[in-house]
Amino acid sequence: MPGPKDLDPSSSPRALLGAELRHAREKSGLSQEELGQRLFVSGSFIGQLEAGTRRMQPEYARLLDEALGTDDFFSRNCAAAAKSRYPEHFAEAADAEAMAAAIREYAPMLIPGLLQTAAYARAVNRAYDPTAHEDTVEEWVDGRMARTRLLDDPTKPLLWVVLDEAALRRVTGGRAVMAEALHHVADLVRRHRVIMQVLPFDAGAHTAMQGSLKLMDFEDAPPVVYFEGVRTGRLEDDPATVAQARFTYELLTASALPPSKSLAMLEMLAQDYAHEEHP
């Protein structure tokens, strides 16, 4: 497996921890596979820790200190690296998303977070917790909008989404909010920043009817897939699981409308929402 790219230790605690792990491992003369054997994990797992695509957990930090003779360095510092503005079930996936070279996502019921507007995100988060304080909701919205800044780069990461028609027709936050949200996605498509396909209702039964999935590929680490449910989620790097998820995504793209027809449908629905709001 190729070694991870050099990380900027000043960029984040997670980047510092990954850089220090790589340094300590190489100083000990161990390959990623050899260190992984001592922790009963794969070499790719170690590579993901070094690349910053996987969050270091306390139990692994302790084992790394023992295996590499680093006193309690990793144990002391993994807590700082684990701090996140995102819910616990999504924090590790958010870290991986920020470092991905390519993201492929299927969204069955809502517009994916990377494509959301602030008003749409606010409606979604308010629906998640109807009794939350306004300041709390705004913190959640700020976190989601921070994720969208990944798209400020004109080319990276590659983002390819398949939107279920249900996500486009479920009126979230009102018709004006939906009109703005769909126009925003259409603008990203027209600027060639995202590849978007719509999976229409008349496609019938399909391979991902049981939930959403997000595939993430990296330049210097193995790919992962993120599965999300109601207030839960898990990040998987098992090669067989990732391969099956990739096949599922390929089947979805084959069942979905081509990009040009998807854009036409998206813009038609956006216009409908706008006209219904202002007849």
Rank of each mutant, 00 (worst) to 15 (best):
D129P: 01
R54G: 08
A270C: 05
A82H: 00
L151W: 06
A256W: 03
A132T: 03
E105A: 14
E250P: 10
D71G: 15
R14F: 12
L188I: 02
L110S: 13
D129S: 10
V224H: 04
H23W: 05
E66Q: 11
H133C: 04
D8C: 07
G204W: 04
I46R: 00
S75R: 13
E66M: 04
D220S: 11
V161Y: 00
R54M: 08
L49E: 03
D142F: 06
H133V: 05
P223V: 02
M178I: 06
T253K: 15
A186W: 10
S262A: 00
P239R: 06
Y86E: 04
V194D: 11
G229C: 12
L251V: 09
I46G: 00
P157N: 11
A240K: 07
A101C: 09
A264K: 10
L151A: 08
A127S: 11
L16V: 06
G233A: 08
H206G: 08
A264Q: 11
V242G: 01
E26W: 09
E250C: 12
P279Q: 03
L49N: 02
G47S: 15
T207I: 13
V137M: 05
P200K: 12
M196C: 12
D153W: 01
C78V: 07
E165A: 12
H278G: 04
Q271R: 14
H192Y: 06
L21W: 02
A186F: 09
T207K: 14
E92T: 15
F227P: 01
M196L: 11
L150R: 15
D220H: 13
L150D: 11
E59D: 07
L252K: 15
A221G: 06
